[in-house]
Design a protein around this nucleic acid. Structure first.
Length: 470
RNA sequence: GCUCCCUUCGUCUAGUGGUUAGGACACUGGCCUCUCACGCCGGUAACAGGGGUUCGAAUCCCCUAGGGAGCGCCA
């Protein structure tokens, strides 16, 4: 019984995107669940478009998500000798041949087929050509079987049958001698002992060709699982115009990798009514055969909700670490303020992302420029003047600036004025925060600190007087 | 055009011949409450259409429609 191996094989022509991350996750989970090994392979045979920046971006994305690989990364560009060896074997066995057709010929062939309302296919005319053609560097084509049917046994799509007559003789080596995609994947999956090929279903149509090649080489077939695409909200394939598609962008925007992973695993798969899965639960419960065969639409709101769930459940220390980083990006040094753990405890149920948490915590660290207009209109009116004056007076006398004490002060002032606490707390909140929303008023006052509170109340009182004067 | 894949609330999904078609996000009514958020209780909302098979179909079969992918000397 050979060891199970899955692989993720991106081509380094961009960052790690959401769709790739999901297939990588599924492959990773499959390997982890069955005690197998997860292989990373970089498909960089397209030298024009492949870049080392992309390789780094992909590795960075995998690392951030925690999808560690057991073998690799292997680079296809390191394996050209091996591909050439296999191509030569195919030639020697008469399973491949030189094709001297020019690109122009191929183009007209395609056009004419389309005109005849047929699928464009190479007509294999060079199979019978014996002599070279002057001035044409040949490509090498694989002799695809001309009859019979190839059945792909797919874990997700079930049995999918293709007639060999629908396929044509694919190019396995370009005229410059370099191997092409279908050849390299086949050789690599074979050499690397890949037992389960989990990839996007845009590859489903390539699979019968790859199976024919595998058979010609006498290789054992892997099990396939073609996972459906991820669509944007307009039903089109997910792309930049739908917002963030790069995995690393989610880190920038304040998402936790576990939340993204959780979202991705539930996109196209489920286990009962469960929505939140730890990594261990995913490994235990995930089965690639249970993945839905239909494409699914990426829903940013649900990801936001999950992220908030993870923020609430996370170790506060961990959130504090991240919050510090995002505050830094706002130009705030978290040391210039209260214990950051207190900030986390006050805000962790109030933010869907870490970026948002930093934004709604800004008032703790620095004075705001102006009051939120609707909040000021509603709460900084002449009726608020007396409560604010009383609060300022009471707060100025507080020695021990702790939430419990502050709560009592607000309550005492409300009682003294014979009004509900909201009549005092809301103007006070707007005065101190600049907006109508914040943590509990006691915690808010505590976090802002005595000096800043008094200063901001004065500013609010001035604002009310000025408004009344106009 | 041809080949292949897909089709349950707006979205992610449960459902494998007999269910008041379940859950989650979003939306929404209420409760909690100093605001916001969290949390709790409730609501709106779906089997693409048409034919079969069957006592009975979201579930099985066929057709139609719609969506997607592939048809490169890209991967």
């Amino acid at each position: 019984m050979p060891i199970m191996r899955t692989r993720f094989a991106p081509s380094p022509t961009g960052y790690l995107h959401i769709g790739g991350a999901r297939t990588a996750l599924y492959s990773w989970l499959h390997a982890r669940k069955h005690g197998g090994r997860f292989v990373l392979r970089i498909e960089d045979t397209d030298r024009e478009r492949s870049t080392t920046e992309s390789v780094n971006a992909i590795l960075e994305g995998m690392t951030w998500l925690g999808l560690e690989y057991d073998e690799g990364p292997f680079y296809q560009t390191d394996r050209f000798a091996r591909y050439n060896e296999v191509i030569q074997q195919l030639m020697d066995k008469g399973l491949a041949y030189h094709c001297y057709c020019t690109r122009e010929e191929l183009d007209t062939m395609r056009e004419e087929a389309m005109k005849r309302k047929e699928k464009p296919r190479y007509d294999a005319r060079c199979r019978r050509r014996n002599e070279a053609r002057e001035g044409v560097e040949p490509v090498i084509r694989f002799k695809n079987p001309t009859d019979g049917v190839v059945v792909v046994e797919d874990l997700i799509k079930d049995k999918v049958a293709f007639q060999n007559t629908e396929l044509d003789d694919l190019i396995i080596a370009r005229s410059d001698g370099t191997p092409t995609y279908n050849l390299t994947v086949v050789v690599d999956d074979w050499d690397m002992g890949i037992t389960h090929v989990i990839r996007g279903d845009d590859h489903l149509n390539n699979t019968p060709r790859q199976i024919n090649l595998l058979k010609a080489l006498g290789a054992e077939l892997p099990v396939y699982a073609h996972v459906p695409m991820i669509l944007g909200e307009d039903g089109k394939r997910l792309s930049k115009r739908h917002g963030a598609v790069s995995v690393m962008q989610y880190r920038e925007e304040g998402y936790l990798p576990e939340a993204l992973l959780n979202y991705l695993v539930r996109l196209g798969w489920s286990s009962g009514d469960q929505e939140i899965f730890s990594l261990d639960e995913m490994i235990e419960l995930f089965d690639v055969g249970d993945v839905n065969g239909a494409a699914s639409t990426f829903n940013p709101e649900k990801l936001l909700w999950l992220n908030q769930q993870y923020i609430m459940a996370a170790e506060p220390e961990k959130i504090a670490h991240h919050l510090g980083i995002h505050l830094g990006k706002l130009g705030i040094d978290p040391c210039d303020g209260p214990d950051i753990m207190d900030v986390v405890m006050a805000q962790k149920e109030r933010a869907q992302t870490l970026v948002e948490m930093a934004q709604i915590s800004e008032f703790i660290y620095r004075d705001f420029d102006e009051f939120d207009e609707t909040a000021a209109k509603k709460h900084l009116r002449p009726v608020a003047q007396e409560p604010l004056e009383k609060m300022r007076e009471a707060l100025a006398a507080v020695e021990d600036w702790q939430p419990e004490v502050l709560h009592q002060v607000v309550k005492d002032v409300s009682d003294a004025l014979v009004v509900k606490m909201g009549k005092v707390a809301q103007p006070l909140r707007v005065a101190v925060v600049g907006r109508a929303a914040s943590p509990g008023i006691d915690v808010t006052l505590h976090l802002v600190g005595k000096d800043a509170c008094l200063r901001r109340i004065d500013k609010a009182l001035a604002f009310i007087r000025q408004r009344a004067a106009n």
